[in-house]
Amino acid sequence: MKLLSSRKARNNLVAYSFIAPNFIGYLIFTLIPVFFTLVLSLFDWNAGDQFSFVGIKNYVRMIHNSTFKISFWNTIYYAIGTVPVTMVISLGLAKLLNAPIKGRTAFRSAIFFPHVAAVVAIAAVWNMLFNPDMGPVNMFLKGLGISNPPRWAASTDWAMPVVILASIWRNAGYYMIIYLAGLQGIPYELYEAAKMDGASGWQSFRRITLPMLTPITFFVSIMLTISCFKVFDLIYTMTEGGPGRATNVLVMHIYQSAFTEYKFGYASAVATVLFVLVLVITLIQFRGEKKWANNM
């Protein structure tokens, strides 16, 4: 008996030794910080040695801060502009690429490549293409007879649309691949049967493809929404949140409050909002997954 339990203890020790190298790093640099974001949001800290407990004061400040409000609504604007269009485009692309045609891999690579390209380079070329005075896009629009084309990243009204356009261009290929995997999971017999019953292409898309893809569509919408809430790189490199505060988003507000204004407590309060938003979306996902798991 004793022998058995000591053997068990040894086995456990072996198991922990496998996990420890990763878990210790993960604990210190991810789990503890997640927890301390909430704690820090109740303090004032300016990166020095002084911490002072301020209760919910940071949250009160946040609600009255106009930049926070603008950033919050800009994030929603960005998400609404990005999520539905990206979903439709990536599903359409997946459907096209699922057909048995030559050169599929080449098309897929071309469409996917923007996703892995460095954002700094992408922002540089987009800003040049959409340069209000000399860029080819506006030259083209002028050629069409539009004498006052939008001033894109230099205009408070058009900066967000051009950022959204860039993000759709950049992300469509990624979600296309997820949809493609989903499409390949639909049994071909379903389409065959529908065809025999005289269903048109559009009908079988509506009655077979879409319903079969529901779990994937749900997953994609969740992932896309989360990715919109955390957007930073693309906006920072394209507009730096400007002009004015026209493209300032939540993470930009967190970044500026913390690393340029050294209001770390306040920034943690904003980060907590981001945290809660993502948590709510994730919980919705869990519930949805359960639902579909039961139905299938």
Binding site: F29, T30, V34, F36, I226, V251, A267, A271
Partner: peptide, 16 residues
């Protein structure tokens, strides 16, 4: 934490 953006806990990380 797999879906949590690291931006939401980057401040305590910075402290550490």
């Amino acid at each position: 934490t797999i879906a949590m953006p690291w931006q939401s806990y980057m401040i305590p990380q910075f402290m550490i």
